[in-house]
Design a protein around this nucleic acid. Structure first.
Length: 569
RNA sequence: GUGCCUGUAGCUCAGUUGGAUAGAGCGUUUCCCUCCGAAGGAAAAGGUCGUGCGUUCGAAUCGCAUCAGGCACACCA
C-alpha cells in the first residue's frame, strides 16, 4: 500500500540526509517514529507526513528538516511539496491506475495482508450457559466475534473459533429443577415457582422451558430425577443455541464443554501444577492462589472448603489447554462485567510458566435496546428480548451490521425501529444500495436498450467480450480521462488495504463498517455527477473498471461482516 | 470505598496513537430526476472536545484533580 511505500522512501531519504549531515544534530532515526497520514484538506495532497517531531533531535526548524528529506527522495513517481513541517505527496495518475489494476487482478483477495506472520489464533466468544435462549447482548459478541474471525482470517492469520460451554456447576442443577416444575405443570399438577424473590433465584422462571417440558414428555416417561431433566434441558438449549448461531452466520470450529474438561482430568492436573508452582496456600479451610503476586488486587480461591473446584480453576485449566494445543494467541471476547476476571486468569498463566501476553481479552460494553428513541431496560424478569426475536424482527443483515458498527468499548444503542427502516437513516441499506446500484449499471452495460416511447431497440453499450476486457486490463491512457472525476474514489479504494491491516491489528471490526459506508458514500457522490455509460468509449471503459472495482471491494468488505451484498433490492 | 469503560454538533458516533481550519451520518433549512436505480446527490446552519490545572514548539489525544453516567468488586458460574 502507498502508505508503506511512502514511509519507506522517507526513511531511506532520512538515512541519506543524516549521512550527509543535512539534518542538524540528528544522528540516528528509529524506523516507525513517523506516520503517513491523510491531509485533512485534500488540496495539500493525497498523503502527508509531519516531520516536526524530529525537530527536537535535529535542533533545526521543521521546514528545513522537511526540505532536507525531500532533496533525498529519488526516482519517485509522485509529487512532493513542503508546507511548514509537513511533506505532502501527490500520487501520479499511473499510481492511481495501478490501484484499479491491482483490484482487477486480485479480486476477492485484494486487501489481504502481505508477509503476515502466520500466527495461530484461537478466538473464543459468546461462551454462554446452556440454560436459556441467547439475549440481545450475546448477539453483539456473536456478530463481532464472527466478523473479527473473518477479518483476521482474511488478513492472513490462522483462526480457530471456539465456544466454551459452561455446562458444569450449579446452574445446570438449577435448570433441571426448573424443568421439573414445568413438567409437573404439563402433567396438570398445581405447582409453580416460589413467589419469594430470594427463593425464586434458584430457578429459571422464564417461559422458554414450557416447550422443552412438552417435548420431554413426548419422548420420555415422567421422572423426578433432576439429573435426567437437567441433561435433557441442557442438550435441548445447546441445540437451540447452535441452530441460532448458524442462522446468524456464526460458525464455530469447536464447542468446548466444561463438563468434558472436568471429566478429562485436566482440571485436576492443572490444580496439581499450581500446587507444584508453590503459589497455593491454605486459609479458612480453602486453597488460595497467590494471584496478587502477579498484579491481581487479591488472592483467589482455587479449591473451596468443601473440596470442590471454583469456576476459576476450570477456566485456568481451559486456558492452559488452549496454550498446550499450540495457539500463539488467545483472544477472548468477554462482557465488560467480567473485567475483574482478566488479571486472575493472566496471573495463573504466568504462574504456570506461560507468557500472559498471549492472552488478549477484548472487553465489550453492553447493548441498550432502544425502541422509538426510548431506552428499554433489559430487566431480568420481563422485556428480555431474545436474539432470535430481534433477528426475526429486523433481519440478519441489519442485526449483524448494527452489532458491529460501534467500538467495542462503548455501550451500543440498538434502535430496533431504525434498524428496520429501509432508508438513508439506516447505514446497512445505504451500503447495500450502493452495491445494487453498481450491479444495475453493469447489467445495463451489456443489455440492449429499449426506448419505452418509440419501442426502438439500440445495441448494448458493450459486448460481453468488451466488458470482460474492461474489467481485467486497465487501459492507462483511458484512465487518464477518468481520474480527474474519480480520484477520491480511487484513493478510498486504495485505503482498503491499510484499513484491513489496521482493523486486524487493532481487532476493531467497526472500522470495516465505517469504511464500507465511506466507500458507498464516495460512490453515490460519483454516480450523481458522472455517467458510467457514455458515448465516450475510452471514458466508459475506464469508468467500468473503476465501478467494477467498487463492487469488488464492497463485496469483500461485506463478506467480512457476513452481511449480504445484494445485486438487486 | 476501590478498579475498569465512557463523556466531542440537537441525536448517534469517528478522530489514523501528540500535529494543518476538530470530522461523518441522522435531524433541520435550501436546491438537484427529458439521462446508468432520488432507497441517491449538492449546499447551509450547528462546537468552551464534561470542568480545572499541568507537561511542550503544539493537547480532543498525555498526567493530576474534579464532576456525571455505566459496569464490576463471591469459597456463583
Amino acid at each position: 500500500m502507498y502508505k508503506n511505500l511512502l514511509l519507506d522512501d522517507i526513511e531511506t531519504a532520512i538515512g541519506k540526509a543524516i549521512k550527509d549531515k543535512k539534518l542538524g544534530s540528528m544522528e540516528e532515526y528509529t524506523n516507525g517514529s513517523l506516520t503517513i497520514e491523510k491531509p485533512k484538506n485534500p488540496d495539500f495532497g493525497d498523503f502527508a507526513v509531519n516531520v516536526s517531531s524530529l525537530a527536537r533531535q535535529a535542533r533545526i526548524a521543521p521546514p528545513m528538516i522537511a526540505n532536507a528529506i525531500v532533496e533525498n527522495l529519488k526516482d519517485k513517481d509522485y509529487e512532493t511539496s513542503v508546507v511548514g513541517g509537513f511533506i505532502n505527496f501527490k500520487l501520479s495518475n499511473k499510481m492511481l491506475a495501478d490501484v484499479i489494476q491491482e483490484i482487477l487482478d486480485k479480486k476477492e483477495n485484494y486487501g489481504k495482508g502481505e508477509n503476515v506472520a502466520p500466527e495461530k489464533i484461537i478466538l473464543e466468544y459468546v461462551s454462554a450457559n446452556p440454560t436459556g435462549p441467547f439475549h440481545i447482548g450475546h448477539g453483539r459478541w456473536a456478530a463481532m466475534g464472527s466478523a473479527l474471525a473473518n477479518l483476521l482470517k482474511f488478513y492472513g492469520y490462522d483462526v480457530f473459533q471456539e465456544f466454551y460451554i459452561n455446562d458444569a456447576g450449579s446452574q445446570i442443577q438449577k435448570l433441571g429443577r426448573s424443568l421439573s416444575i414445568r413438567v409437573k405443570q404439563e402433567l396438570g399438577e398445581n405447582v409453580d415457582f416460589p413467589q419469594d424473590e430470594e427463593e425464586r433465584k434458584n430457578y429459571y422462571a422464564g417461559e422458554y422451558l414450557i416447550p422443552v417440558a412438552k417435548k420431554f414428555l413426548e419422548e420420555n416417561q415422567p421422572t423426578e430425577d433432576i439429573n435426567v431433566l437437567s441433561d435433557y434441558a441442557k442438550n435441548y438449549m445447546e441445540n437451540v443455541q447452535k441452530e441460532l448461531l448458524e442462522k446468524f452466520r456464526v460458525h464455530f470450529d469447536k464447542f468446548y464443554s466444561e463438563l468434558d474438561l472436568h471429566k478429562s482430568g485436566k482440571v485436576d492436573v492443572c490444580y496439581k501444577k499450581l500446587q507444584d508452582s508453590g503459589k497455593l496456600y491454605e486459609k479458612d479451610g480453602a486453597m488460595w492462589f497467590k494471584s496478587s503476586e502477579y498484579g491481581d488486587d487479591q488472592d483467589r480461591v482455587i479449591k473451596k472448603a468443601d473440596g470442590s473446584n471454583t469456576y476459576l480453576t476450570a477456566d485456568i485449566a481451559y486456558h492452559i489447554d488452549k496454550l498446550e494445543r499450540g495457539f500463539d494467541k488467545l483472544i477472548n471476547i468477554w462482557g465488560a462485567d467480567h473485567h475483574g476476571y482478566v488479571p486472575r486468569v493472566k496471573a495463573s498463566i504466568e504462574a504456570l510458566g506461560y507468557d500472559p501476553n498471549k492472552l488478549e481479552v477484548l472487553l465489550g460494553q453492553l447493548v441498550n435496546l432502544v425502541i422509538n428513541g426510548e431506552e428499554v431496560r433489559m430487566g431480568k424478569r420481563r422485556n428480555m428480548v431474545t436474539l432470535e426475536e430481534l433477528i426475526d424482527e429486523v433481519g440478519i443483515d441489519a442485526t449483524r451490521f448494527w452489532m458491529c458498527m460501534r467500538n467495542i468499548d462503548t455501550t451500543l444503542d440498538f434502535d430496533i425501529e431504525l434498524a428496520k427502516t429501509a432508508s438513508d437513516e439506516n447505514p446497512v441499506f445505504y451500503v447495500q444500495y450502493a452495491h445494487a446500484r453498481v450491479c444495475s449499471i453493469l447489467r445495463n452495460l451489456v443489455k440492449e436498450k429499449l426506448n419505452t416511447e418509440t419501442g426502438q431497440k439500440s445495441p448494448a453499450p458493450m459486448t460481453d467480450e468488451e466488458f470482460k476486457k474492461a474489467v481485467s486490463t486497465v487501459d492507462y491512457k483511458a484512465m487518464e480521462k477518468a481520474i480527474p472525476t474519480a480520484k477520491k474514489l480511487i484513493l478510498k479504494l486504495e485505503e482498503y488495504k491499510s484499513m484491513i491491516e489496521a482493523s486486524a491489528l487493532n481487532r476493531t471490526v467497526y472500522t470495516v463498517c465505517r469504511y464500507v459506508q465511506e466507500l458507498a458514500g464516495e460512490f453515490h457522490s460519483f454516480y450523481n455527477s458522472n455517467r458510467v455509460i457514455t458515448d465516450d468509449r475510452e471514458l466508459m471503459e475506464a469508468r467500468v473498471a473503476i465501478v467494477y472495482s467498487i463492487k469488488t471491494v464492497l463485496k469483500n468488505a461485506l463478506d467480512i461482516l457476513a452481511v449480504t451484498a445484494p445485486e438487486r433490492m
